[in-house]
């Protein structure tokens, strides 16, 4: 049995209003310390709002958050105390009109550290993020990627226990993405810091995070929003058929006739080399185009007219002797298809 890490955040019945009309509702969510957590979801699903809530920039509108044992609710006055235990990098970071060194020293100085100590911490953070050479530059003299790294140094200078990163790798080129991803892992590994980051990139979430939190329309959902397709549902006899736009037709259990969105749970798709003789109503043929390993789970992308992601255990993968370019059959029941 694996030992559970202590809890950094425990959210219970937490509601957070974001003007003008967005509301985040988290019935329950626990975030362990010392791990890397990814928050995924579509645009407008509430990723940034959840991060703002976890950053204690404002108290929750209702419900509670327990942060390292400290209770935070709508009436809490200890937000500053909690904020000072964490660091945050915004999607579009702001750098003050000073040198990078002074920017990085802002956090420690705000916490009352002496100028000397603050500068030392800033220097260390800049070193950690590989920004030492740019320490005398001002914010407006940095590129987009450098700004993100600088903002990371600013957050790290205060030696936070939790680091919150909002779309850290968005709007930067691939090389810089890798560099920032390495930094995320390095922060977690070398500083024993809990890292929570938002991303659109599921591949990145799986690659970097120990846990993936999935959001949809302002609430946590128990599935990862993968394999979502636009389709048109029609009645054919007593069967409901969903024709995926630009892809195959599959039988579904729910959904009214007309345009719809469906989701195929990557964990409930059965992969085989040949068509299985089973009670499942859906069999899709396709070719493996992409494979990756994450935490003993293999993620396959199968081109079945549309790319479909399938998750299977490493043991199953080895047993089936699957390889890139190989033709396979995906089998699934109609109840494995969610109409969303």
């Amino acid at each position: 049995m694996t030992e559970q890490a202590p809890i950094a955040y425990q959210l219970t019945g937490t509601v957070f209003h974001r003007p003008p009309d967005f509301t985040l509702r988290i019935p329950t969510l626990a975030i362990e310390t010392g791990k890397v957590h990814a928050i995924v979801g579509a645009n407008g699903s509430g990723k940034t709002t959840l991060l703002d809530l976890l950053a204690f920039l404002e108290p929750p509108s209702a419900g509670q958050v327990i942060f390292f044992g400290q209770l935070i609710n709508a009436k809490s006055a200890n937000l500053l105390e909690c904020r000072r235990r964490l660091g945050m990098v915004f999607q579009e970071p702001y750098l003050f009109h000073h040198t990078l060194m002074r920017n990085a020293a802002f956090g420690p100085l705000s916490r009352g550290a002496s100028r000397k100590d603050s500068m030392a911490k800033a220097r260390h953070a800049l070193e950690f993020t590989g920004m030492t050479q740019l320490q005398h530059r001002r914010g407006n003299q940095l590129s987009g990627g450098e700004k993100k790294r600088a903002a990371l140094a600013m957050a790290l200078a205060s030696e936070p226990e939790v680091l919150l990163l909002d779309e850290l790798t968005s709007n930067v080129d691939v090389n810089y993405q890798r560099l920032l991803e390495d930094l995320i892992l390095k922060v977690n590994r070398d500083r024993d810091c809990t890292v929570i980051f938002t991303t659109h990139n599921l591949d990145q979430a799986y690659r970097l995070a120990h846990h993936v939190i999935s959001l949809q329309s302002g609430t946590v959902i128990d599935f990862i929003p993968e394999n979502i397709f636009d389709c048109h549902i029609s009645l054919e006899g007593d069967r409901k058929i969903a024709r995926i736009v630009g892809g195959p037709a599959i039988e579904v259990a729910d959904g009214a006739p007309g345009p719809a969105k469906i989701m195929l749970d990557p964990g409930s798709l059965i992969v085989s080399r040949q068509v299985l003789d089973s009670s499942a109503r859906n069999h899709l043929g396709g070719r493996i185009t992409h494979m990756k390993l994450h935490n003993h789970t293999v993620h396959l992308t199968v081109d079945a007219g549309v790319p479909i992601v399938v998750r299977l255990t490493l043991a199953s993968y080895q047993e089936l002797k699957l390889d890139l370019g190989q033709n396979v059959v995906l089998t699934f029941k109609i109840h494995s298809v969610r109409v969303i």
């Binding site: 920039l57 500053l80 904020r83 660091g87 915004f90 702001y94 003050f96 009109h97 600013m154 957050a155």
Partner: peptide, 22 residues
């Protein structure tokens, strides 16, 4: 973003107001 950044970096309300002024 100035106020948000200052608060996220651990500034008090007064310190964040000062950052805005600066």
């Amino acid at each position: 973003r100035i106020r948000k950044t200052a608060l996220a970096l651990g500034a008090t309300d007064t310190q964040s107001a000062w950052a805005i002024l600066s």
